[in-house]
Structures are given as structure tokens and as C-alpha cells.
């Protein structure tokens, strides 16, 4: 085969391959989203993170603004230490609060970030003070049954 034809085919092949990678990165993956921008890191402690996993989304008002970068355990306070990496495009007041939520009844868990009213904004390395851990289904059911028993005994008492 002629060298020029060969080069043309190989060129087309390489371009097609790169287009495929770009398609996967931008259309299938999340590279088109926040990830390509700069990020800053904030930390938050939770009494219980439930089934939260690294890379879980951080949402504010339902919009993905960052991801869980790391999950650790603080041996002094016996709490979970979660590192969030937030897109530099969004800034939040310093007294913002974080809560671990579940999308749907059985869906994946994410961190909901609720903006506060402080004038100072969160900076890299700051710690979120107001947090709410995951709601554990077993505790919830236990509580529910306990309350039900309570109200039954109350009704039976008089």
C-alpha cells in the first residue's frame, strides 16, 4: 500500500480514537462538569456517616458543587472526618452547614451543603462547624417502635 494512503488511514484512526476518549471524558464522564476547574478543600466532622463513600457528590440546593475527597476517623473525638473538595467557582459562608442525605429511599448518599448568613467566606482548609450525620434506618425504625410503645402505654394508662 502507498505510504500516503497508509498515513491517511492511521491518521484517521488516531483521530477517531482521540475523539472517542474525549467523548467518554466529556459526555460520559464528569470532566465537562466542575472537575476541570480549581478546587478548595474544607473539612467536616460527623458523628455517623452511614454509607457515605469517597467521590460521593456534594450538593447545594440540589446542584453538584463538589465531591467527597477523603473519609477518615478522628481517634480523639471518635467522629468521622470527611474532607470535601469544592469547586472554586462556588464560595459559601463560613457558618454553612453540612448534612448527609440519601437520594431517594435507597439511593446513594451525598452531602448537602446549606449556606449560612456569615459575611466571611469559607477558605481552603476551613472546618465546617454545623454538621448533621446520616440518618441510620435501623435507629429510625427503633425510635419509631419505641415512640409507638410509649404512646400505646400512655393511651392505656388512664
Amino acid at each position: 500500500m502507498q505510504r500516503a494512503t497508509l498515513d491517511l488511514w492511521v491518521g484517521l484512526f488516531v483521530v477517531a480514537g482521540i475523539v472517542a476518549v474525549l467523548f467518554l471524558a466529556l459526555k460520559v464522564g464528569n470532566l465537562g462538569g466542575y472537575d476541570n476547574g480549581a478546587t478548595y478543600v474544607v473539612k467536616a466532622s460527623f458523628d455517623n456517616i452511614g454509607g457515605l463513600k469517597p467521590r460521593a457528590p456534594v450538593k447545594s440546593a440540589g446542584v453538584v458543587v463538589g465531591r467527597v475527597a477523603d473519609i477518615g476517623f478522628d481517634p480523639k473525638s471518635y467522629e468521622a472526618l470527611v474532607t470535601l473538595s469544592l469547586s472554586a467557582r462556588y464560595s459559601f459562608p463560613q457558618d454553612s452547614s453540612a448534612a448527609i442525605m440519601t437520594s431517594g429511599l435507597l439511593g446513594e448518599q451525598y452531602i448537602a451543603l446549606e449556606a449560612g448568613g456569615d459575611e466571611k467566606m469559607l477558605a481552603n482548609g476551613d472546618v465546617l462547624k454545623i454538621t448533621q450525620g446520616a440518618v441510620v434506618l435501623e435507629n429510625l425504625i427503633g425510635q419509631f417502635l419505641y415512640n409507638k410503645n410509649d404512646s400505646q402505654t400512655e393511651q392505656a394508662a388512664p
Binding site: 476518549v21 467518554l24 459526555k27 460520559v28 464522564g29 464528569n30 470532566l31 472537575d35 457528590p57
Partner: peptide
């Protein structure tokens, strides 16, 4: 597409 993009991570998956 949106659920796909939320779940597929460039570094981890692609």
C-alpha cells in the same frame, strides 16, 4: 446522560 455524568468519574473510571 446526567446520571451517567454524575456517576462516571474521569480519573477513577475512564
Amino acid at each position: 446522560w446526567s446520571q451517567m455524568q454524575a456517576a462516571v468519574d474521569f480519573k477513577e473510571d475512564i
